[in-house]
Design a protein around this nucleic acid. Structure first.
Lengths: 231, 231
DNA sequence: CAGTGGTCTAGACCACGGT
DNA sequence: CCGTGGTCTAGACCACTGG
């Protein structure tokens, strides 16, 4: 009895053939039926392998036309945007979050000008500092749309960060993320204990519920991002 | 005859229950068998939906223990690191790539100091500028390990960017990516026509073949990254 | 139209790991 | 131990789309 072939094995063997240029970039793969015959397994098993490869951006699939190796294989990676708390815990650092300020009023000009929100909304603004072993790691500025999340006003964000509270209050809501390199404003630099105009990664999150913005978060980060993936 | 239920439908209905807090964060889901009974479909269909949700970081699954809603749902996103060429084409801009310089020799000090490569390797260094409609968009500095990719020396990277050539030459090799915010060096700023010390996103790619570094790319970017995903 | 991928089914066996 | 998820099978029907 030969060892049974699994979808991971099929994926591996296909990858080998692509890497060895037996199946060059842009070339057509055999159909699922013929691959199943070759590997002596069910078509569903081949299908699972091919679906995986397509998700990874390595092959393109079309009905009738069949599967082919991407001529420009996408470099698709999975990125996990972790909470600062999670990152600190994974590194074994003591996590702490402090609320620095809290105000209520109209959205700031830039937010309206960038078209992120309508000017007539009332926003709860919280500035919070995240520390790892006492050292500043990230400054978060959170604007919560008080018209949509009125009960946010009842909360004190001294121990729980606004982003964590929002996540628990609105499980699984969508976010649009933008990553920018910015020069630090002097007040931010002071808080993070860095030089004025030091370069920093700034992540802007628009938190959406059915096309309505429930909150906007600006996270100014001291560290960097690391990703691993296919090239 | 009722409409047949597909795995996407099951995923949607599960998401609804999580969003409505019928199944709170951290709570256990019914087993695949009971869900299949409830939805009147095969277990494989439920399984496919649950595997999807697990990949999205929304639920955690363990044998015997069953599935439960992640207590801290991960914010997993897919990010596609596109070639500058691809990005320009998608935006309808004229893409162009110029080789600025090309030298050969030992790896630079920082590369050795950061432990990215052994000092005794010979590297081919190419500096190339990527333009969209004539405007500088990205500066790439590529070091190719000439010991591992000797035939790179035969190539002229005046029209084809080193990263594209490498990708075609080594299909599907792995890369480790790091994203940093940096202040531009004055020479770089001059080339990109920006202010000295302007903040920029710098992507560093270590290109690997079986634990050996075949190339290192530093891409200094003018633009930003945008991602969409679950919060 | 005909071949391809997309999906579902009903059943099966197995590995893992709480209890 | 034994229930759970992980996977495979053989077969089926359908939707899409290229020729």
């Amino acid at each position: 009895m030969v060892a049974k072939i699994g979808y991971q094995d099929i994926r591996t063997r296909i990858l080998e053939r692509i890497r060895s240029k037996e199946w060059p970039l842009g070339s057509a793969l055999p159909s699922e039926v013929s691959l199943a015959a070759e590997f002596k397994c069910a078509r569903a098993t081949v299908n699972r392998a091919l679906v995986l490869l397509a998700e990874e951006g390595i092959i393109d699939r079309k009905r009738k036309a069949g599967s082919r190796v991407s001529d420009y294989p996408k470099k698709v990676s999975r990125i996990e945007l972790k909470l600062v708390r999670t990152e600190m815990e994974e590194r074994g650092l003591q996590y702490e979050c402090k609320q620095l300020s809290r105000t209520f009023g109209a959205p700031p000009d830039w937010m309206v000008n960038e078209g992120r929100i309508e000017p007539n909304q009332q926003m709860l603004f919280i500035e919070s500092l995240h520390l790892g072993d006492g050292k500043p790691v990230q400054l978060q500025r959170t604007w919560i749309n008080a018209s949509l999340i009125p009960h946010a006003a009842d909360h004190n964000f001294d121990s729980i960060a606004p982003c964590e509270w929002l996540r628990a209050d609105n499980p699984l809501c969508r976010g649009n993320y933008e990553l920018h390199a910015v020069a630090m404003e002097s007040e931010v630099a002071k808080i993070l204990k860095l030089d004025e105009k030091a370069p920093a990664l700034q992540l802007t999150i628009d938190l959406m519920r059915d096309d309505e913005v429930i909150a906007i978060i600006k996270a100014i980060n001291v560290s960097c991002y690391e990703i691993a993936g296919a090239f």
